[in-house]
Design a protein around this nucleic acid. Structure first.
Lengths: 195, 195
DNA sequence: GTCTATATGATGATAGAC
DNA sequence: GTCTATCATCATATAGAC
């Protein structure tokens, strides 16, 4: 019995992991099903035993990417504002801009998702709302007023900064990251002037 | 003499206008040369008398889009902070999110440009720097300290907000826009509490 | 310069063997 | 479930007539 249900689930996850990695790095339209399957160590014909279409994969890959993201894994450990700022720092790092660790689907795919079908957009929106809700809760626990509005501001700033930075040369990237970090520190802990 | 140099220049501009409109609305990869030329009232064979490749068109279209943008046309009229805020309001409007007037190439193409060749990226970066420089100068004239850093913060917030909003449903769009507007008002004119 | 026609290549998706 | 082989489609780009 070479093909157990567990094996299928494992294959599916390999496909999803490969997909979100490649989509984030090169863009959805520039990656073929063949490339995804190659990175997942299968041939392209096997793809359709797991997903109805490439587009269907897109929505699932976004969800998977959200689960694997740094924020998703680390947010529950936050107990003090310093922890929170550490995650901000990680988000606004050169490593994140240059796609080293786990990518943030929100920042990688913004522009692209806007042109996709409702299923894909719903996945993105759900991911956004999950991040918003989680961050809002953290900020509330940390004692901030209007946590939801503040979280929205932080997320739009983070995503805007990182996605723009990825279009620029190294020097401007660093300038953008440094500056957004300072602005958010100022907004969140105005007393300390940590540069 | 049916094909004067003026006629050629006019055709070229029609192509560029059609291109930036379609790229912003549907994304670069989802628009074919044929579609661009159709909107420019020509057939696709004529394209290559104006541009070396579709990719070459991309870079030029970004520049053209920047020239036609609202910010580019209105920024020189700014004399008071209220004028400045009016442009912020226009940027953070539902009309802009839903691509009515002239689109902002910065917000439409962020994610996409990051995966393109150096020529395209340079066009985008030049557009970004032009907007940054212009806004910085305005903020300086209006009396703000650190105008360049402030302009960077404003632009990343604007682009992040609008590009994310385009992936969401109407209700969340409005929430995002309202909130970012309030945050920027608070940052720029903290005395007034204009909601 | 613009047209029609075509070469060439890659993609998403399916069929059938194992 | 995964493989190889193939279909059908559509894309970019070129050739040649006007």
């Amino acid at each position: 019995m070479p093909y157990s249900p567990a094996h299928k689930a494992q294959s599916r996850e390999r496909i999803l992991t490969a997909a979100i990695d490649l989509f984030c790095r090169y863009g959805f339209d520039q990656i073929s099903v063949t490339q995804v399957m190659k990175q997942a160590n299968m041939t392209h014909g096997a793809f359709y035993a797991h997903f109805k279409s490439k587009s269907a994969l897109y929505g699932e890959a976004i969800k998977q990417g959200a689960v694997n993201s740094l924020w998703s894994k680390e947010q529950h450990k936050i107990t003090r504002i310093e922890h929170f700022m550490t995650l901000i720092d990680a988000y606004l790092s050169m490593g994140h801009v240059n796609q080293l660790g786990a990518p943030c689907p929100l920042a990688c795919l913004v522009t692209d998702v806007a042109h996709r079908n409702p299923a894909v957009r719903n996945s993105y929106q759900a991911t956004f709302q999950a991040m918003l809700k989680g961050m809002s809760k953290q900020l509330s626990t940390l004692g901030f007023a209007n946590p939801n509005a503040l979280a929205q501001h932080i997320i739009t700033s983070l995503v805007g900064t990182v996605s723009i930075a990825r279009t620029l040369d190294k020097e401007l990237q660093q300038s953008l990251l440094d500056n957004s970090r300072k602005e958010l520190y100022q907004r969140l802990i105005p007393n300390q002037s940590r540069d």
